[in-house]
Structures are given as structure tokens and as C-alpha cells.
Design a protein around this nucleic acid. Structure first.
Lengths: 246, 246
DNA sequence: ATACATTTAATTGTCTGACATTTTAAATGC
DNA sequence: GCATTTAAAATGTCAGACAATTAAATGTAT
């Protein structure tokens, strides 16, 4: 592991890259201990604070974890699904909010991805998944629910749909798409009538999965997409008008 | 922005979290300048190196960028698609390699997601996208290509298929799924015969998109999935046998 | 001999202070 | 009025020190 002496970039960034490459390439394996900060400082010919900045960069990506004390140090971290979910969601959320992604585009992406899961979910859904979906549907039907709680339950329902496919890689990939929509969905005011419509569609989806009927699920999902898009467009139109006026 | 004095976690982690929350919540907006390191050190009542460690954590997530010199400092960074792609790919690749994801599961996820794009891609593909696909197919048909180059071209083809949908959010979400498969695909030895089969299927997909025929594209993609799975299973079986023997 | 307490050494976490480097705005000189 | 110089502000880097934590090694008493 060496760094380029001609490179003008931050030393800590270069060192982080060198170590990151070693991890990604499999040169360093999970739970392997990195040299101590002092040793790394020696190897790279930099000071300890510089090494520490590099290690913190890697820690921020969950690539390493550190432990204090004797026989402590920095270790290559096994990236868990939970950690990856978290990063995925943060990144996806920021990407949407910072780049002025329209409701339409985000909605299209989300439902396209969910449709990818439906056939698998229809084939594999467990009783557990169905129970989760029914429970969320039940919650959504309760009166007096705040819009935010309704949204959170909506997200939970959709995650159950995705998890039903029984493919952890799919679940990971979709976590970002589903969760990142929440801030956009939270802008919507859900009337009693729209909630009724959504609950009905959710029920149709759950019924279809229970019956292992992919086509029926797909159709209901399509209708849900159209309806969500409709709600979102109303909100966006109102917001734009408000902006124009005041 | 405050930190909990009772918290035993690293100060730099706490400070990073406080600033990250301010960014994600929209409390700090894109291109807004953070206080200088000295000011932050004052505010949080810590030393400058500690603040710097926190800032490096945020920089590793592309949440901030720093600029040296007078009127420089740390600024909230607009997360670009490219930066997000990069992180997405690193994370997805590590997640697969570190958690012993089987070829089957990764393959299923990848093709399920790609199928989500096909109808959109058939409707919207530009001449540009088609040209890219044709160029990659042409490259793949050339004799004497190394397996790795063939794989890289395969990835480029699939990314064109995804980009054809004209939805940047989809492209972002799928970058990880498509690229993370490459290390697994690289384990495959592509015989002349298998390359022929793959090129033929790629051609069918490109033809279908050109004709704006989603169903034909979907069918070819299904066959490609089955074929890829077949190749992958052969490799895995051989590898497992080698392991058992020696 | 075993259980428990103590010491010790290794390592990360944090602080202080200094200097180097980079960049821009303002001051200066022509 | 334009070019050059200067000064100031900020990040980047270094050196050295001390605090806090942890597990192994050691010692001690039952």
C-alpha cells in the first residue's frame, strides 16, 4: 500500500483510498486488523492526525470499525445489510432533495422497481409478510391518523411487499427507492377519501399475494401508481401556484 | 446544533451526526458555508483535530466539500449522480462479497431490476442509447477479447439498457445492482460458444428496443437471465468441487 | 489450584500549539 | 486604470503530550 508523492490531493484522502482499495479488492479480509495508527503513520510517512483523518473517512463508510484499548485497533468491518440500508437511504434521500427530482420521476422509479419484486413476492411471500401487510392496512384504515403516520405505514407496507420477494439484495436496493419517497409523500395531504382508495388498493395487493396471483398484484400496483401520481401532481400544482402568488 | 455531553461515543462521530442531521433535514442548504474549523471547535467545545475528523467523515459521504484559502472552508455539497453512483457501487459490491451472496440471488435481483426498466426503455430509448448498445455488441463479438474486457462490455451494455429508461433515479438505483455483479461475472470463463449466445441475446434486446417492442425485449432478457444463471452455476459447481478436493 | 484483584502495556481518543500552503481581497505602486 | 504586491483567512500537516480504555500478565489470598 503506497501513495503517490506527486498527488496534490489531501494526504488523508489518498491514504483512505489506498486502504479502501485494499479492502474492496479483497486484499484485506473481514475482521483483519489494520496496523496501529502509529504504524500506519510510519508506513505512509505522515503524522498520526493525518492517519486518523483517513481512518475516520473509512469509518464513515462503515468499511472499518475501531476498538480502543490493548489489542484494539481498526478492523475491516463486515458491511451488514442494516448499515448498508442506512447509507443507501441517506444518499437516496439527499440525491432526490438536492437535485430537484420531480415527484413524477421519483414515483415512476419507485413503482417500476416495486413491480420488479411483485412476481417474486407472489411466489414466495410468507405468512409473516402477509401478516405485516394486513397489520399496516389495518392501521391505515384507522380514523384520526396523522398524515405522517399514514405515510410511515405506507412505507412499511411497501417494504413488506419488497421483502416478500425473499431476496436480500433486492430489499437492499429498494430500501433507498422506497424510503427516499417518504419526504415527497409527506407533502401530500391525505383526505379520508384518498386514504380509502389507497387502503382498497393495498388490500387488493395483499389479496393477490395471498392468492399467489402475480398479474392481479401487478394490476393493483399499476393503479396505485396512477393514483399516487395523481395525488402528487395535485400537491405540486398547488405548491407551484402558491409560489407564483406569494 | 448541540451534542450530548453524556454520550460516550466519539466526539467526532457526534459532531458529524449533528452536522449531517442539519444537512439531511434541510436546515443547511446546498452551497451554504459551514463555520470555520476554529469556530466549530469553539461551538462544540472541542479541539480543531476533533472537528477535522468530523468533517472528514462528512466529506467521505460527499455531504460537504472543502476549499482552502481565504473565504474557503467547508460547504454543503450538492450530491451529484456521479458521486452517488460511486458510493452505491462500492457499497453494493462489498455487501455482496462480504456476505457470501450466492450467484443465484445476485443474478435474480439484477435481472428483476432490469426487467423493471425494459418497458420504459422500449418506450423512450434514444438513438444514442441504441448506438451505445450496438457498439458494445460489436465489441463483444470480436475474437481475442479477454474475459474481463468482455465482462466490462457486458456491464456497459446493461447500463445502456437501464439508462434508456430516461429516469435518472432508476439509473442511480440500478448502478449498484449491475456493477456489483461484475466481480461475480468475472469468475466465469466465457467460451466462444457462450459469447456467441450472449451476443445473440443482446442483439435481440437491442432489436426489440429499436422496434419499441417491450414484450420481445422482456422475453430476450428472460432468456439471458436463464443463460447467465446457467453459466454461473457451472462456475460455482466447479469451484465448490475444487474446494472440496483441495 | 483456583478465583479474584492489581498491574502493565498497547491502543485509540483528545488537546495544544505551531507551521506550511493556498486562495482571495485589499493595498500599493506605476 | 492596471499590474503587482501584500496581508489575512482558511485548510492541510506536523510534533508531542496526556487521558481513557481494554485485555493480558502478574500477583495474592483463599
Amino acid at each position: 500500500m503506497k501513495i503517490d508523492p506527486d498527488n496534490k490531493a489531501d494526504l488523508s484522502a489518498q491514504i483512505a483510498k489506498a486502504i479502501r482499495d485494499a479492502i474492496v479488492s479483497g486484499d484485506m479480509i473481514v475482521d483483519e486488523r489494520l496496523p496501529s495508527e502509529a504504524e500506519l503513520a510510519d508506513q505512509f510517512n505522515v503524522s498520526r492526525p493525518t492517519v486518523r483523518e483517513a481512518l475516520k473517512r473509512l469509518a464513515a463508510q462503515s468499511l472499518i470499525r475501531t476498538q480502543r484499548g490493548a489489542f484494539g485497533g481498526a478492523f475491516v468491518n463486515r458491511l451488514s445489510y442494516e448499515e448498508a440500508y442506512g447509507q443507501q437511504i441517506t444518499t437516496a434521500t439527499l440525491l432526490l432533495s438536492m437535485n430537484g427530482i420531480s415527484f413524477d420521476v421519483a414515483c415512476e422509479a419507485r413503482y417500476a422497481l416495486e413491480r420488479a419484486c411483485t412476481p417474486l413476492s407472489a411466489a414466495r411471500r410468507t405468512a409473516d409478510i402477509l401478516a405485516t401487510m394486513r397489520a399496516e392496512i389495518h392501521r391505515q384504515a384507522q380514523p384520526g391518523l396523522s398524515d405522517e403516520t399514514f405515510c410511515a405505514s405506507d412505507v412499511a407496507f411497501h417494504r413488506a411487499l419488497v421483502d416478500g420477494a425473499g431476496n436480500p439484495v433486492l430489499s437492499y436496493q429498494l430500501a433507498g427507492a422506497v424510503e427516499a419517497m417518504q419526504p415527497l409523500m409527506n407533502m401530500i395531504t391525505f383526505t379520508a377519501r384518498s386514504r380509502e382508495a389507497i387502503v382498497a388498493l393495498h388490500t387488493r395487493i395483499a389479496d393477490a399475494l395471498e392468492a399467489r396471483a402475480p398479474d392481479a398484484a401487478q394490476e393493483a400496483l399499476h393503479e396505485l401508481e396512477a393514483y399516487t401520481l395523481h395525488l402528487g401532481r395535485d400537491v405540486m400544482a398547488t405548491r407551484d401556484k402558491d409560489r407564483a402568488n406569494g
